[in-house]
Design a protein around this nucleic acid. Sequence first.
DNA 1: TTTAATTAAGATAAAATTGTCTGAATATAG
DNA 2: CTATATTCAGACAATTTTATCTTAATTAAA
Lengths: 144, 144
Amino acid sequence: MLSKTCEYAIRAMIYIAQQSKNGSMVNVKQISSGIDSPELFIGKILQGLSRQGLLQSLPGRYGGFYISDAEAKISLADIVIAIDGDKIFNGCGVGLDYCSEKKPCPIHTEYKKARNAIYKIYKESTLAQFRESANKGEIRLKRV
Amino acid sequence: MLSKTCEYAIRAMIYIAQQSKNGSMVNVKQISSGIDSPELFIGKILQGLSRQGLLQSLPGRYGGFYISDAEAKISLADIVIAIDGDKIFNGCGVGLDYCSEKKPCPIHTEYKKARNAIYKIYKESTLAQFRESANKGEIRLKRV
DNA sequence: TTTAATTAAGATAAAATTGTCTGAATATAG
DNA sequence: CTATATTCAGACAATTTTATCTTAATTAAA
């Protein structure tokens, strides 16, 4: 399960990807209202992602955040790893940190398959997909 | 991802299931050393599970915990739900609490499939399986 | 019945996560 | 150049999770 921080991050990134399609800025106020989440906290999260190069930011009046076509190649998995690390995609199903092929936990083999499927889903979902106008009506990032 | 509490719980339950095969008691000291985890915390966790009827306990000298053949039918999924609730098996992949068939999040459909696979793995792993002597050598509940 | 070792329960403490505040730096319009 | 609105950064605060402490109740052996 993703951390709350990570869930916010994913939703914010999707929102920004949609709103900044033509290079226009989106500010924290818009984002936090667009995904219904705490403004200052979202700000902090995006600062971190920006430092890691997952999106662009511009300080100053009329500044904000945006996602370029290059960054639209970023997948949800990239965001998850940037925030929560890769434990969710590689970790053991019962929390044994040394669990491996050589020293498998009781559910190792089956769990690994399922975990890989989860990874695939996040990995194959890119921000670019969310820019497609075809999707727009279907995507809900907050309660309506 | 499971909470740390839940991971401890699963490992403790597996350990107890193995050790109390013939109805003998296992105490908290043995369990905590058997799965390499904090003794007092494991005690607390097992108290809760015992209240919920997932295992038996006996206070007093020579007391401890044990798992009967009836309780050996319990699955890892039951333990997860008892500790962390069912959010991990039913929750949305990007944390939208209203996400549903009617109002799906962007990765709803695929994520649901993978999530169900995870559930199946936990659901089909019963404590009884861990009592089988055939498994014994293969199962590692702590670093060796 | 006494004693010792255990679980039970509630309070407390520590650590991690989530969220907010404040002031500085920055950028743009006028 | 000035005024204004924004991100940036670090400190701070609140909440949740994880872990411990203390005392009581319980059990069985001797």
